[in-house]
Design a protein around this nucleic acid. Sequence first.
DNA 1: GTCCATCGTACATAGTGTGTC
DNA 2: GGACACACTATGTACGATGGA
Lengths: 339, 339
Amino acid sequence: MKRPTIIDIAREVGVSKAAVSYALNGRAGVSPQTRERILDVAAAMGWRASSAARALSNDRAANIGIVLARSPEVLRTEPFFMQMLAGLEQTLSAEGFSLQLALAADTGTELDTYRRWWAERRVDGVVLTDLRVSDPRPELLRELGTPAVFFGTAGPMPGIPVLRADEDEAIRSAITHLAELGHRRIGHVQGPADLQHTVRRADALRRAVGETPGLSVHHASGDYTEEGGVRATRRLLSAPNPPTAVIYDNDVMAVATVVHAEELGVRVPADLSVLAWDDSMLCQVVRPAITAFAHSVVVDSATAARMLLELIETGSADDGELSPRKLMPRGSTAPAPGN
Amino acid sequence: MKRPTIIDIAREVGVSKAAVSYALNGRAGVSPQTRERILDVAAAMGWRASSAARALSNDRAANIGIVLARSPEVLRTEPFFMQMLAGLEQTLSAEGFSLQLALAADTGTELDTYRRWWAERRVDGVVLTDLRVSDPRPELLRELGTPAVFFGTAGPMPGIPVLRADEDEAIRSAITHLAELGHRRIGHVQGPADLQHTVRRADALRRAVGETPGLSVHHASGDYTEEGGVRATRRLLSAPNPPTAVIYDNDVMAVATVVHAEELGVRVPADLSVLAWDDSMLCQVVRPAITAFAHSVVVDSATAARMLLELIETGSADDGELSPRKLMPRGSTAPAPGN
DNA sequence: GTCCATCGTACATAGTGTGTC
DNA sequence: GGACACACTATGTACGATGGA
């Protein structure tokens, strides 16, 4: 039951292992007949190159890494990460690469994981997501020389190709949707303050609102959890002139508002329209169902994987654009009170 | 920026690379003073063992693999898999192991992945889940000699330690709960027919129902999706004497029934009680919230990882038991009509 | 002669530059 | 010049041998 090596093949065929290596790698230096015999024997033996030996000899692990840096609690409820893994794995396995996965509770652990992976030559590159405000990861990876691509909201990053989202476009369609329904005061329950897309989304929202006279936007901080969403919503609603529509930075917080509407003292959508940034089954099963932005994480992360492979292969890769988000109007958004 | 090797350390300290290897691995054969000097220099140089070289020399990849064999659609909606990954990774990283992840659309691809991983010496073992009715995986892995543990519902498996669920206990508590509410005719919407736990759960249900005179159980096949759940429920309800309570093999199908109750022509829980086998946020946010079985997938899969590491280390590991499921009574179960 | 520290070297596997018939 | 073999590369581990106390 021993796993065969090229030496076993060489012995069986009666040639040197160099000949076997040349034949298996499609290089010149073996006659067609010999090549064919070698390939036959290799196939019959079920030979596969040892990833360790290959990595050692040509400095390629054929493995790329991703670290999920969210609490298990958030990972559990957000389908985003599983879709991302699916998309990455799809591209990688088609190209003969594997996917190395780690979780990290804090930034220190995450940085250590990159350092360790790279020092151990365990991965050829990594995929980053969720850029943080003053994020130490790009600098570390540049310093290490680890190929990396960024997936999500981010500005240009020297040395690190970015697959970027055009938040403005999506935000504008949300504002248009709400404005057409007569909403003037719009709330925004944000994600964690240390995430770049929290900041950029708030900026985009302000820009979009600024384009339409008479609109205003009011922000409150959430943390992607149910409780955080409810707390932030309560804060918005307790203002003298509360918003009549609220945009949530994820599905869980939007769902929390619909579920706890009664204790919040509002009816959805009669008093308050609710709009979620991420679509998911959660948005679809609550009542009223939640108007949300859908986007194809699987497709986008497959693209990110392709960018990373190109970067590893050629040393550079161009930035890209995420597929646009699409607004899915559902029951949670309705005309503003008094319209 | 060149990566240091033990040879660099040996040169710097002025000893042989064997001495360095012994010192770094905490083995006997070097004097305390030499050991200390070596460790200092290694730390100063930022040395980490090349995983490839180590794997090559001692036949250990320090990596374990898992293949998720569900459609992306199901993976997306079921939090089970993400929790499992979290649990596995937690144990593995603590022991210096990494996690290799693949998805497979069909059994052929899954088997190929195991073959490839093993032949490439990419993993030291694998974790299996979702045993199928006539499952080719245990035989293949035995044949390859790949260490494997099984996580979930399964009988004893020669050569493969199993972390087994005691379905009977949980099923019995569900039946007791429903019987106390006055239900006599109980429906069961099953998962895919080719999964072992679908079969075993149905058996356990029949056994439990047999223990209480006057109860009967009626099965219908679902496929873990919303549409499948609704179809199966419609079939059960169209019988001459329809059930007054239905147990669903996962959360998605139970949620689908609650969400589509009106078109199914029933009120939940007035006409029909609903009980889900898997708990999740979905069960908690729909109205009525769904009575469900909670269990700690993270804890259980961490245990499975520990079993696998023991198997790899020592060549054998004992079977284990999953932590018991706990019934979470919520609004979707109520007294049977006429009680 | 024993014990310990240390060294030399073979080994794990695949890839590749140079030499030979 | 085509078709091959040999020897060496990558890095870390482990066994047997050697030297000194």
